[in-house]
Design a protein around this nucleic acid. Structure first.
Lengths: 198, 198
DNA sequence: CCTACCGATCGGTAGG
DNA sequence: CCTACCGATCGGTAGG
């Protein structure tokens, strides 16, 4: 019954999670095998199951870890007493920051969530739908008070979120401009497309 | 040696390709099995191999079919005698059109190309890199003659291409605005972000 | 933490 | 076009 431990359980699990994020991002969830994961952690495949319940559990934890962070940020932004256009820029900057500094998990959450099993899958899809609705509501509010161009808000949300997801290509690029310049460029391009011509 | 044929070979192969596109899009390349594909075509798995060489061959043909269409369009746009900003809007409209009318293949080409085997993989990556360079060159030309905001052109390309990829979410959405309205909204938002404030 | 191993499923082939 | 089947690999468990 006793476990041999070189580190405490939680750091071991965190190591597994971070290696899983990198592996799922690189190979895709289905193509990434538990044997590959074990190798990158430095143990045999069977040993992983002393720390985790299943391969899908790793995906749950990665996806909901990321989703929860975005939901929390949305709560803060909604409560803030700032103009709508600033709320949107704030969200854009947050997305970019997350994409740059938590690249692997955010990418996995973005592209591999469809492999979640079903109580989690529906839950995740609902959260995602809610997030987009709340984002669109901010844009619509901005349209009503003439600080944003009259456009279809749900379409604008799709564009914004996917455009930011494009940082993925930047992240792996060899000749990349620095993160601050990237952020500024994106806010200019995306924000500039929303403000009415002055 | 004789083959039993209810239709001619090429239509049979096209059927397989189109079913494969739908399946790879829905499940992902690795998670989609040849047995699933066979079922959706209406034959046994082994029978598929009278028409195709391998699972990866299907991916090659889908990816390069799409890539070639985009390359051809780029040739035309480059040769056209129209202002840079119109070239960009033309490309944006083409991307949107392709995404709407050839959704499954374009999506697979976009998201599943990493499972290509290696002579094809490198080839594909090169084509993709070239395409983006040529797109960025048009933007840079527009910046030089002051018809486009001074931004980082490669970043702008990333944003544009990924933003359009976001139509994926629109495509599966239940309450979607119509295709023309979507296109107009996207051109407004994306184009508006590029033009200098007047 | 490891060795040994299970049943399921995979892409693909042989042969007709 | 099908039946039958192959070797490889998968996620996961038993038992220590």
């Amino acid at each position: 019954m006793a476990r041999i431990q070189t580190h405490n359980n939680s750091s071991r699990k965190e190591l597994i999670l971070s290696k899983a994020a990198a592996l799922f991002r690189e190979k895709g969830f289905k193509a990434a095998s538990m044997r590959h994961l074990a190798e990158s952690v430095g143990v045999e495949a069977a040993s992983l199951y002393n720390h985790i319940k299943s391969k899908t559990e790793l995906l749950h934890e990665l996806c909901f870890g990321v989703a929860n962070r975005f939901m929390q940020k949305m709560d803060e932004v909604e409560a803030a007493k700032i103009p709508d256009i600033e709320k949107i820029e704030d969200l854009i900057r947050f997305h970019i920051y997350q994409m740059i500094h938590h690249y692997e998990e955010v990418y996995v959450c973005d592209r591999e969530w469809k492999y979640l099993a079903d109580p989690y899958l529906s839950n995740f899809q609902n959260q995602r739908r809610m997030y987009r609705k709340r984002f669109a509501a901010i844009i619509e509010s901005g349209i009503r008070n003439n600080s944003i161009k009259p456009i279809d808000a749900p379409t604008a949300v799709l564009i914004l979120l996917h455009a930011i997801g494009g940082i993925e290509s930047w992240h792996r690029s060899t000749q990349k401009i620095d993160a601050d310049a990237l952020t500024q460029n994106m806010v200019t391009i995306l924000g500039g497309g929303l403000k009415p011509a002055s």
